[in-house]
Each structure stands twice: as C-alpha cells, then as structure tokens.
C-alpha cells in the first residue's frame, strides 16, 4: 500500500469516525450522569433530517447545524421528561425513542427525498494543510474539527471542573448528591439534553457533509454503534475517540482491502472485530482486576426518586 493510499485511508477513517464520535461523546456524558438513553439512533435520524430540511430551505449551513442540534435536544427532552419525571423504564423508553425518531424523521423528510444539497465547506488549517501528503488531513469540514475539540473539552470538563465532578457524583451516588443539595434530576435533564444535541449533530454530519442527502434510515445503525463505543471506552472520552476511530477505521479498512484484492480473511471477520472487542471489554469490566477501575457509573439506568 502506497503512502498516498494510506493517507486516503486515514482521511476516509476520519470522516467515518466523526458521526460515531459525536453521538458517542453525547451518550457518554448522559451515562456518566447515570442515565441510559438507547434512543441515540432516533435522535441522530431526527437531527439528520432537520438539518437537511433547514439546509435545503434556507441554504445556510449554520442554521442547518443549529436546527439539527435543537431537534436532537428536543427529542431528548421528551425522553428526559418520561424517565425523570414519570420515572418510566429507561431501556424501554430509549428503545421507544429510537422507533419514534425513525418514524418522525421519515415524516419530516417526505418532501426532501431526492434533493441534493451542497456539502459543508472544507476549511483548511493554515500551515498544516500545506504539509505535503499529510496536508489533506487538515482540510476537513468544521464538524470534523469540532468532534476532535469536543473530546478534549469533555475530558477536561469531566475530570477537572467542579461541574464535571458534580455530574459524575450524580451518576455514581445519586442519593448522596441529593442529600448534599445538588438537584439530581435537573443535572440529569441537562445531561440528557446535551446527549440529544450531540446525537443530532452526529446525524447532521451524515446528511450535510458525509453523504449530503436525505434518505430514510440513513444512519443505518450508527446510533447503536455509538452506544457500543461508550461501553468499549469504559465511559472515558479519550478512549471513546479511540473507539470511534477503531470502529470507523476497521470498516473502511476492510473496504480498502477488498478493493485491493489482498484480503487474506473474509471481510465479514474484520467487520466483526470491533464488536468482539466490545464484548471483551464488557467481560473484563464485569469481572477480575479491571472491575474497579473500569466499572460503569453506579447509578446507570436506575430511576431516582427524591426522598420526601
């Protein structure tokens, strides 16, 4: 494989990883606050169609991205109301949210099928983009950069800020957090909104930059992969980035290998590897010496009823 091909492969991997990374980072924050939202796929689809609709109506990429964020957050708000206020089962509500989001996005998108829009503009980073060969990696659309920056910001937020500490406390010991005066439900609601916004953004990346069009169900399961990445990453932002690149990269790599005719194993085996990795991580974190270091947030998926 030539150097140029390697750079092409990296470039395609970066774009394939971006929607996964955006959605996974959002879900990671939600889960660190102790809430499991399985509706990522539905929120991504709703974000994708809303962004696309606003793009084709107004032609403004900024408004389109904002609309996708708002749509994802709005759907997440419904979820938040159901699981926090009505204390419905988080797993069932999340699944319902995915089904609802799939249907809703199809409904909104009826009039938009078959109309292409221009892709988001590529922004070259001055200096870096001029590097021979590798420069192509620094000529991406804004959302790719944003996803990368978001990893650092979220890692810093969770680790080094007071607000991040409170959010983690809410996810690890909701009763204790409540008893020292933190508004558990409000913090969780905000985390859920953030998760929805990020999922919406991930969806918008698909419909505005990756394949700038709208077709029903265009996320094709990426919301579920994002959920797997959160587990794979053991709820750590930097590992989520590694996971997104691994999941995206393996898919792209197996396509390249098929095309080159050099693939020594069936391509299905390669496609399977990231999920095998996820199962492995799940096994490791639920037993053995890794259990204490990588365990999920203690209150994950449990409803919180403030004691009266």
């Amino acid at each position: 494989m030539s150097a140029e091909m390697l750079v092409s492969l990296l470039l395609t991997t970066m774009t394939a990883a971006t929607p996964l990374l955006l959605a996974a980072l959002g879900e990671l924050v939600v889960e660190r606050a102790g809430v499991l939202n399985l509706g990522v796929e539905g929120m991504m689809l709703t974000g994708a169609v809303s962004g696309f609709a606003i793009m084709s109506l107004t032609g403004s990429p900024w408004l389109a991205v904002l609309a996708a964020i708002a749509a994802g957050a709005l759907l997440a708000a419904i979820f938040g109301f159901l699981v926090l206020n009505l204390m419905s089962n988080q797993v069932a509500t999340g699944l319902a949210l995915t089904i609802f989001g799939t249907g809703l996005s199809a409904l909104i998108g009826t009039g938009f099928t078959g109309h292409p829009v221009p892709a988001l503009a590529k922004l070259a980073i001055p200096g870096l983009a001029a590097i021979p060969l590798l420069g192509r990696l620094f000529e991406q659309d804004a959302l790719v950069y944003l996803a990368t920056i978001a990893v650092a910001v979220i890692a810093w937020f969770l680790k080094s800020t007071r607000a991040g500490l409170i959010l983690r406390a809410v996810g690890e010991a909701d009763l204790s957090a409540h008893s020292i005066g933190y508004p558990v439900l409000r913090i969780r609601f905000l985390a859920i909104l953030f998760g929805g916004a990020m999922a919406g953004l991930g969806g918008a990346y698909l419909s505005l930059a990756y394949t700038p069009m709208w077709v029903e169900n265009m996320t094709a399961g990426r919301g579920w992969i994002a959920l797997a990445i959160v587990v794979f990453a053991a709820w750590r932002p930097w590992r989520a980035a590694a996971g997104a690149y691994l999941f995206g990269g393996v898919t792209v790599l197996q396509l390249y290998l098929q095309g080159s005719g050099l693939l020594p194993v069936p391509p299905q085996l390669l496609s399977m590897l990231p999920y095998l990795g996820t199962i492995l991580v799940l096994t490791l974190i639920s037993s053995g010496p890794f259990r204490r270091r990588f365990s999920p947030p203690a209150c994950l998926g449990k409803p919180f009823r403030p004691p009266t």
């Binding site: 091909m5 395609t12 069009m213 077709v215 792209v252 390249y256 098929q258 095309g259």
Partner: peptide
Amino acid sequence: VIWVNSWFDPGKEADAAKSLIDQ
C-alpha cells in the same frame, strides 16, 4: 468488486466508492 453486505447504508456505500476511486 467490494461487498458492503447491506442493501442500504449510504455512508458505507460512499466509503466503498471512495476506496475504489483511491485504488
């Protein structure tokens, strides 16, 4: 030929096309 093992996954279809063009 690249098999994407799906009838419908726009993102993956696009990736397959990109890798073929790169080759």
